[in-house]
Design a protein around this nucleic acid. Structure first.
Length: 732
DNA sequence: GAGCTACGTTTTTTT
DNA sequence: AACGTAGCTC
């Protein structure tokens, strides 16, 4: 069969990766180097050359989006359905294993996936039961602790460092949590991975079966794997034992150590760094030719990232043009920062560009508010990328809980969530009784609800309400028996009273919620049940639990994209603004004292820079109000790492605006007038160098001035002695 | 059970 | 500053 067309249009490194002989491969794919293309073509190559069958390939990603894209592209390239190929996220593939082998995995057949919301509720409840002071030990931290341990593959009984009281308490909660999950057949996200790893560990035959089946494993974003994922992959794809003949599987790891930005949630950059050692005979290929950005942008990115240590090493280059210089703008404050951005976007759009070609990136979500306000004021359509996801919304989770109860009456998390939504007179008191009874009898809340009534544990009124609820569920269940999936969803959303409930809610919020519920029905209509033997509803619910659902389901107006640097990974835009380029904000102050975390921040900066195709703006604010406090940040060290020859400072001709309102602003103006200086003015000091005027105080010989110096940070000086010189700021 | 107030929190996010 | 939550009152 002719396979050369699969190499058409690829560069040498890409070809090498696609057509490599059977061996472990590490593909270091720089930003914009065509990594998905290589991955997809490699799969096609393996199939077409007969080195693998569709049955024998596994392709793993982190997000559903990436999995979907890979699937689509394979289908398009080969023009065959990819149905029975194992392409999916770590979680969906591991979940598939657990569903097939629930018995061996020590799970009930109807085990339920719990999202982080459910998880936190459970932890809170357990901690209350254990009478742990939740001010000293916040449940959020317990959740964090548990997930961290699980990501590392550590079970409760093996937790280290239980000498200090905090860790001991946390370990205790973890232990209770583990037991509670096991008892109710609940599985959290980390558990899916850990459990499926243990499944193989404890069932060598099973592992052997899958090893024989999946001879070729391809992994995307390898730098983001955590300890368990890595162990899982090594088990499946790694060399087994010492016998050379035992090495029959081939792992292709595609990733970029320079884009590892998820260390804080368990990702281990070491996994990619030591891949060549752990996977014997691995061949490393570097994709360094970039098809996205101008040379200027790549030079800046290369230069910044070169300040990191222990890199596998990589240098992006392009055949494209040098492009525009990077623009650096010093805003007076965050409002000025936002204003500059909107006006720059205005002229960009006037030049005939689409708003959708622009992204404004920030380190933390708190920064988005001011930007949003500016966009609204200027009437520029924008969209916030990320944020709350569809399946995480309260009303959606409630609707899903009803569906889950129909699926399985013994789903306690679902029971608790909606037993009183819409309100039907079942209060905390009643639920406590049910919980207590369920716990003592080792039964589900559903069963407890029935027994409690029969045993007369409830007041007449409560018993009545509870019966109303259980009857409602039974009725919904009976009535939807012969319905299709979307009919069921539609029916349940209506008859559960949720629509009615949210309609009564005041404000636009209720309206939006009703719309979301309708959107859920649409999602059910469009849901592809596939060839699963399970009931469609179960498949739908499982998938919903593992798919946050893209938040961007909304109408597709041409709009500017606002997002955090983290969510920008993998995306590209012609014009990119990196905002808040101040030490303390970016790099974030929580990270700047730890060299490792600082390097991760630098990688984040690298990710940000390499999002830009044509033009990059770096923006910072001399003065920023954050969480109600003033900050006088200094230019981010990362900006200083960019060669000055690539950067051009921008200063607006129009005067920088002062803080509005307030008596002080008025007084400041007076003080400014007789000094000849004004707020936002660039001044030069014989010792401290250049800086920006931030504030004024007093008048005459007592007048003091606050200047934020580039190199020294902000200082108060006595105007009469300061020997400040105004720097001409009209050079642009 | 709803509505109000006071208090605490606040890096980054996927599954 | 702004938002969510917890606890309190009616």
């Amino acid at each position: 069969m002719d396979v050369t067309d699969l190499l058409d249009g690829l560069n040498d490194a890409q070809r090498e990766a696609v057509a490599a002989p059977e061996q472990h491969l590490l593909v270091l794919a720089g930003a914009g180097s065509g990594k998905t293309r290589v991955l997809v073509h490699r799969m096609a190559w393996l199939l077409r050359t007969g080195q693998a069958s569709a049955h024998g390939i596994m392709a793993v990603t982190f997000t559903n989006k990436a999995a979907r894209e890979m699937r689509d592209r394979v289908e398009k390239l080969l023009n065959v359905p990819s149905r029975h190929m194992w392409i999916g996220t770590f979680h969906s593939l591991a979940h598939r294993l657990l569903r097939h082998h629930w018995r061996e995995a020590g799970l009930p057949e109807q085990f339920q996936i719990m999202d982080s919301d459910d998880q936190l509720r459970l932890i809170k409840r357990l901690m209350k039961q254990m009478q742990i002071d939740d001010t000293k030990y916040p449940p959020k931290q317990a959740q964090w602790f548990i997930n961290q341990q699980k990501d590392e593959g550590v079970r409760a009984q093996y937790v280290q460092g239980v000498n200090n009281p905090f860790e001991r308490t946390m370990a205790g909660v973890y232990d209770a949590y583990e037991k509670a999950c096991q008892q109710s057949g609940l599985v959290d996200f980390a558990e899916i991975l850990l459990r499926s790893h243990e499944l193989w560990l404890n069932n060598p035959d099973l592992l052997q079966h899958y090893r024989q089946r999946f001879r070729h494993i391809l992994v995307d974003e390898f730098q983001d794997t955590n300890a368990v994922q890595y162990a899982w992959l090594r088990m499946l794809g790694g060399s087994q034992g010492q016998a050379p003949s035992a090495t029959t599987n081939y792992l292709m790891a595609v990733g970029d150590d320079d884009q590892s930005i998820y260390g804080w949630r368990g990702a281990r950059i070491e996994n990619i760094q030591r891949f060549p050692q752990d996977f014997a005979g691995a061949h490393t290929i570097r994709l360094e030719q970039n098809y996205r950005s101008t040379m200027t942008i790549l030079q800046a990115a290369n230069e910044v990232i070169s300040h990191n240590s222990g890199r596998l090493g990589k240098n992006l280059w392009t055949e494209g043009e040098q492009g525009d210089p990077i623009s650096l703008y010093a805003g007076f404050n965050e409002q000025d920062e936002a204003r500059f951005i909107t006006s720059s976007i205005d002229s960009w759009v006037k030049q005939g560009h689409k708003k959708g070609s622009v992204a404004v990136l920030y380190r933390s979500n708190a920064q988005s508010r001011v930007l949003e306000e500016a966009f609204i004021r200027e009437g520029i359509p924008y969209r916030i990328y990320g944020g709350q996801r569809f399946y995480e919304r309260l009303e959606i989770k409630n609707a899903l809980a009803y569906l889950r109860l129909i699926q399985s009456r013994h789903d306690d998390a679902a029971f608790e969530r909606v037993v009183n939504v819409p309100t039907r007179g079942i209060g905390e008191r009643t639920i406590m009784i049910l919980r207590e009874h369920a716990r003592s009898q080792g039964i589900s809340l559903w069963q407890a609800a029935h027994e409690a009534r029969e045993l007369g544990l409830l007041t007449a009124r409560a018993a009545n309400s509870v019966e109303g609820f259980t009857q409602l569920i039974d009725r919904l269940s009976a009535q939807t028996l012969d319905q299709t999936l979307d009919e069921t969803v539609h029916y349940v959303v209506e008859k559960s009273g949720l629509i009615e409930f949210h309609k009564k809610e005041k404000g636009e919020k209720g309206q939006a919620r009703v719309e979301n519920l309708q959107e859920l029905v649409t999602a059910a209509q469009e849901f592809d049940v596939g060839d699963s033997e399970e009931p469609p509803l179960k498949t739908f619910l499982d998938e919903a639990a593992l798919d946050a659902g893209d938040a961007q389901a909304e109408a597709f107006e041409d709009s500017v994209q606002l997002m955090t640097l983290h969510s920008a990974k993998g995306l590209e835009f012609e014009l990119v603004f990196l905002t808040g380029m101040e030490d303390g904000l970016f790099p974030h102050k929580m990270s700047q004292d730890d060299p490792q975390r600082l390097e991760e921040e630098r990688r984040l900066c690298y990710v940000g820079i390499t999002r830009a195709e044509k033009k990059l703006y770096l923006i910072y604010a001399e003065h920023r109000r954050l969480h109600g406090q003033d900050h006088y940040g200094r230019l981010s060290r990362f900006v200083k790492e960019i060669p000055t020859t690539l950067v051009e400072e921008v200063r607006l001709k129009s005067q920088v605006s002062r803080p509005v309102s307030s008596q002080r602003a008025y007084r400041d103006t007076a003080a400014l007038d007789d000094s000849g200086l004004r707020l936002g003015q660039i001044v030069s000091h014989p010792v401290f160098g250049e800086g920006t005027v931030l504030n004024f105080e007093g008048s005459g010989p007592q007048a003091r001035i606050q200047v934020n110096f580039r190199a020294e940070g902000s200082k108060w000086l006595v105007l009469a002695y300061a020997k400040l010189e105004a720097v001409n700021s009209e050079r642009c």
